[in-house]
Structure formats: C-alpha cells, structure tokens
Design a protein around this nucleic acid. Structure first.
Lengths: 360, 360
DNA sequence: CATTTTTCTGTGTACGCACATAAATATAAA
DNA sequence: TTTATATTTATGTGCGTACACAGAAAAATG
C-alpha cells in the first residue's frame, strides 16, 4: 500500500520496459486477439515483476460502452424486503455511474416454472455483462446458472446460497447460524422455560424461501442441544386471506396458553405482531426478521421484542460493487460474504435505520 | 437518479449555454478569482437550472496536487481499538488513491497538555486539506478546533462528540443509548435481579474517554427507570500494574458474592475476563465493548457473554470517505452519523469479524 | 520465381472530461 | 497612444481505451 504511491507505473512504462507499444500491452491486459506469442510473453514477463494497478479514473473515463448489470429478483416482493435490496443496488449503480454502469432489475415469479423460464430467457437475451440473482428453488435456478456459465457471464448469489452451483460469490446471512442465535435470544426472554411457538408462512404449499427453512433448522439445533425439554409448537399460516389467520391464531394461542415467547423466520412478523396488538397481549414476546416498515412500527410499540436485521441495502450495494470491480478491474471477491447477524431492539432501532439510509 | 443517465451535462455544455468558455465556468465552479460579475451571473444562472454533477473520474485524473488528510488520534492506543480505526482509514485512503488522496496519522498524548499542544501545532503546520480527530478532553480539543476553523480546514469528529464545536460531521456511536441498551441486555442475563457490578478503568486519575462516562450514564438511566431496586456496585481499577488488579478484584467479588452479572464500559473487558478465567468463575456473566483480540478470545471461551461492537474499521473508512467527498466534490455529509449498536455473542462473532475484514 | 492478395501483428492517435496555465483579447488607467 | 490590469480563450496534461492504419509475413495467383 505504500510502494505505488510515488512512481505509479503506467501503461506506457510497461510498454517501454517490454519494448513494445502500448496497444500491445493493452491486448495482453484485456487478452484481446491479434498478437504474437513472443510479444505476449515479453509483456507478461514485465507484468509479473511489477504489479500493475491501472488507474481506475482513466480507465473509467476511456471506456466507451456501458457495463450492463442485471439483477434477477423474485417479483412477489414489492413493498417488502427486496425493495431495500434493490435500493442498495441502485445506490451503488449511481455511485458507479461515472464508470458507465447501468443496473437493470428483472423480476421473476418464483412460484411459476413457466413464467420463470420466460423471464430467464429474457435476461439471457439481454446479454448482460454481469448478473446478480436470488436463487430460490434449486431446480429452477440450475438452468439459469448453467446458461450463465455457458455464456461466461459472471454472476453472484444474494440472500440464499446454493454452494454446489459455484457462483462468483455469495452475499447474505448464514441462515442456520442466525436461527441458532435467535433461539439463544428467545431463551433469554424465556427464563421459566415455557413452551416456544414457531410461526411459519406457507405460500401455495411451498415453503417460500430456503432461508426460512435453514433458520428453523438452526433454531432447532440450538433447542435440541441446550433445552431439549422445552416444548416447541408450530403453526403454519397459509396466509392467503388474512381473516383466516386470526381464527387460526386464536385457536393456536388458546391451545398453548402457557407459551410466552414466539418466533417467525421471515419478514412476516408483523402478522403476528398485529394480532398481538389487536388482542392486547403485551405479555407475549416475539422475535422476527427484517426491518420492514410494518415490523418497525410494531417494534416501536413493543409488540415485537427483537428483529434480526440483514442490512438489505448494504447487501444490494455490495453485490453491485463487487460485480463491477470484478468485471472492470478483475478484483476477485471472497466466495462467501456473510452479513453480520444484527439484533435490533426498539432502543437501538434508529441507528440501524439511519445507518442503512447511507445507501438510499 | 435517472435524469443524468442519458445526456450527461459536461462543463463544455455549460459553457455553451452560458455563452462563455470552459475556463470561465471552471472559475465559477471553484470560485477562483479573475472573472467579471456578469459572466459569473450568466454561469450561475445556468448552473441553477441544470444540476451539474462533475465526472469524478475526469476530475480525479486532472487533479494535480494530492489531497492531504490528517487523522489526529490518541497515541496510547497501539494494539487496541484505535488500531482498527486506523486500518479503516488506510483502506479508504487506498481506495481513493487514484484520486490522489494521502492519509497521515498523527498521534497525540491525551494525558499531557504540553505534548498535546506540540502535536496539534505540528498538525496545523502541515497544512492539511482535511482533518479527522478524536476529541478527548473538551478543553484540550477546543484550541485545535478553533485553529482549524481559523484556517478553514474542514474537520470531522470520530468516536466522541462535542456538539458545541460543530465539526463538519460526527461519526461514532450514541454512547448513552449504547449504555441504555447494555443495561437491558444485562438484565436479560439477570432474571433473578441480583446485584450488578460495574467495572471502570481510570488512567492517571482521568476517566479516559467521554464515551465511557456517557455509556455509564445511559446504563444508569435504564436501571433507575426499570429496576430501581437492583443494587449496583462500582469498582475503579487504576490499572497501572495488573497484579494490583487481581487483589482488588478478589476483594470486590468477595464483597459481592451474590452478584452474577457485570459490565465494563470500555474495551478492557479482557481484564475482568482473564480474572474470571483464572478463577474458573463460569457462572458470572460479563458484558463489554469492542472486538479487540483479547476480548474476542474470551468471548469464544465463554468468559465474556456479550460484546458491543462499534465497527471501528468502518468508522475510519467512512470518515476518510466522507471528508474526501466533501473536499473533492462538495458532498455535504449528515451532521450526525451514528454507527449501529451491535450486540455480538460467540455464536455470531465470526460474521462480524469477516464483515469488518472488508476494510483491511 | 515474381507479383498480388490476404492474414497477422504492431503503431499511432483521437477521445473521454476536468483542470490549470499560457496566451490572447478586452478594458481601464496613465 | 502606451502601459498596466482585468478577463477570457486556447491549449496541453493526466491515463487508459479502442480503432484506424501501416507494415510485415504468409499465402495465393500468374
């Protein structure tokens, strides 16, 4: 970090050292065609000795075509968590606008195979320079990933990981660990070791997200290890019509009147929170995920005790930034980028909100 | 965020619109001398209509003199918290190296007025373009701030705030809130409402940092409001020679054998943690601050339950970034930038460490 | 074998945009 | 009108990119 300061090596310097012209050096750097093996070797020899760091400003200034980044995101998400992820992406895109970066959001329907494939094809037809995608159902995602690999389009996974598919990098939380941690926090709210309630959201019979399932697994691991005797009761909310929810919740709470603590492993905590507020149950403690508006309100009112934040805007931002740095400057990212598991209570909520505003 | 995309307005465009040459526009933008009132007005009129966003790459490329940022930091801090702050600064500096930014760390002795003034004068003599400083004792800091204002050198405060001095911006945690939150977390570990122990570190009779005091205030506010009947016992460790510590701790713990929970409002939790480890007291719960190496080890061993993280590297990074953006591009920062209060346990520690590595 | 055409390789250079200074012009003072 | 000063214009610089072009080598044609 100190060496380059003074005598920054420029591309002309390399050309001089290698005894070729700058155009030739450029060909090596971007491995473009039309150059002989000898001159390639000469340049590569020089590059090995000095480690060349191109001037990003000059590079940006000179680039002619814009860099097209596509984000492939589940569409059912308007007004929710994904909205913040997208904001973060757009913010990064704005910061890189001098670098001629253009970010496009492409939505897909994760519950409709046919529609999904159509969207995926549209994505590929656009011939983007890089793709950020949220892998949902592994089988669906596989096809897209294969085609991206075939077209040699670098791609990142965000939110949910499928290690076998080997994207350029993954950004998101370690879901199991987060569930494990959630269990510990819940048990702090439950010193009398009363039963725990777990609420789940089921969309059209499908679990919805890998993340939800993995968090639950982590939670169960903790409970099995540390508190095997604490009973856990589950309620699946189909949540097609909210009025049904209330009936189900009435019954569930009546059946487990001794429970004082509950958890839901997605951003729908507000459904339970609203119910608690309506029924004036201030004795019940709830842990949920994500600082979406409805959850925030309930956290402030005291109907949600803990929210685990995932810094969605930061995630979106990091993805765009990482992908651009890779494509433009060859910066290799870490394969796994785990976002810290952040516990938010009403006391410290404001600082989290303000901090994420950084990416607006 | 969409408008500029297509027809980015350049400085020549402005010149054309205003009917002057680019040099004249440049004078207005950087308010340099030697231009008539009429042409200034003409250009300003145009600038008001369109909102000009200079191309940062071109700007960086063209700048001739480097931008000198100085960070003014307490020196007793080697091997501790400040080290990470500095790493974050250097990382940002590296990222901005194409923008010809140079960051220099200047240390001062916060416990020696004379030495402090000498350091401050050296800082001012260097005529930096911007300064990041940690205000310690208000009276000491005042003089430096006054001189910086006089020389019109923009400056930020990091870590500790003195609102009356009105720096360009503040970066750090809301210390009172953090203490308030710490109290809540402690009480979760203390369901039987046993007495609380508070450990303090006193350097040469001086409290050390504003932050420590403010955290304690927040803590006491919470306890007074919510648990006025829980006794709190204080121990001040002069901590000049560690062997004395042990004797004091022996006595303190003996006097308050019923206490199961303790807190220390600075990064010296490891002192208590080491003691607990040595005495094999695994029943005692401890909350401390900062992910410094010694604390991390004890968190992993289970001798510290909670650490509150301040993202020191991120803070350092943000400061340099903010200051550069302000000086180079006139981006006005928010006056208060509160870093989220992050609760770290051994379960989720790794993700925090990895996340901060982003700034290495 | 000489000559033309095609393919390959490498060179030169305009361009992107803001900045800064030298040169040129206009204006005022002498 | 000359000299000094104020104001504006013209131009070169920073550095990497990408393309047009020149030159050389190889292949094809007569």
């Amino acid at each position: 970090m100190k060496k380059e300061e003074k005598g920054k090596i420029r591309i002309v310097d390399i050309a001089k050292m290698a005894g070729v012209s700058i155009g030739t050096v450029d060909r090596v750097l971007h491995n473009r065609p039309n150059l002989s093996t000898k001159s390639r070797e000469k340049v590569e020899a020089v590059l090995k000795e000095i480690q060349y760091q191109p001037n990003r400003s000059a590079s940006a200034l000179a680039r002619s075509k814009p860099l097209e980044i596509y984000a492939f995101i589940p569409q059912h998400a308007i007004g929710t968590y994904w909205e913040d992820v997208i904001k973060g992406m757009q913010h990064a895109s704005g910061e890189y606008s001098d670098f001629k970066v253009r970010t496009t959001i492409a939505y897909y329907d994760p519950y409709n195979l046919y529609a999904f494939e159509v969207s995926a094809q549209q994505l590929l037809d656009a011939q983007p320079d890089g793709v950020i995608m949220v892998p949902t159902e592994p089988h669906y995602s596989r096809k897209v990933v294969d085609k991206l690999n075939e077209a040699k389009i670098p791609h990142l996974f965000i939110d949910s990981e499928i290690p076998a598919y080997q994207p350029l990098a993954f950004f998101g939380q370690d879901a199991r660990k987060s569930g494990y941690f959630a269990a510990r926090m819940l048990m702090l709210l439950n010193p009398m070791h009363e039963p725990l309630l777990v609420f789940r959201k089921i969309y059209a019979g499908i679990s919805g997200s890998n993340q939800q399932d993995r968090r639950q697994q982590g939670f169960e691991t903790y409970m099995t290890n540390k508190y095997p005797d604490v009973p856990i009761h589950y309620l699946d909310l189909p949540a097609m019509q909210p009025d049904e929810d209330e009936l189900m919740l009435d019954r569930f709470f009546a059946d487990h009147a001794d429970a004082k603590v509950g958890v839901i492993f997605n951003s729908n905590a507000f459904i339970i929170g609203h119910y608690l507020a309506k029924k004036n149950r201030s004795d019940f403690h709830l842990l949920g995920y994500d600082l979406i508006k409805q959850n925030i309100n309930l956290l402030q009112d005291g109907h949600i005790d803990f929210l685990i934040d995932q810094s969605p805007k930061k995630q979106g931002h990091l993805c765009v930034q990482t992908l651009c740095d890779y494509i433009l400057f060859g910066t290799k990212p870490a394969p796994y980028n785990y976002i810290p598991i952040q516990l938010v209570t009403h006391e410290i909520l404001d600082d989290f909100i303000q901090s994420e505003m950084e990416y607006d």
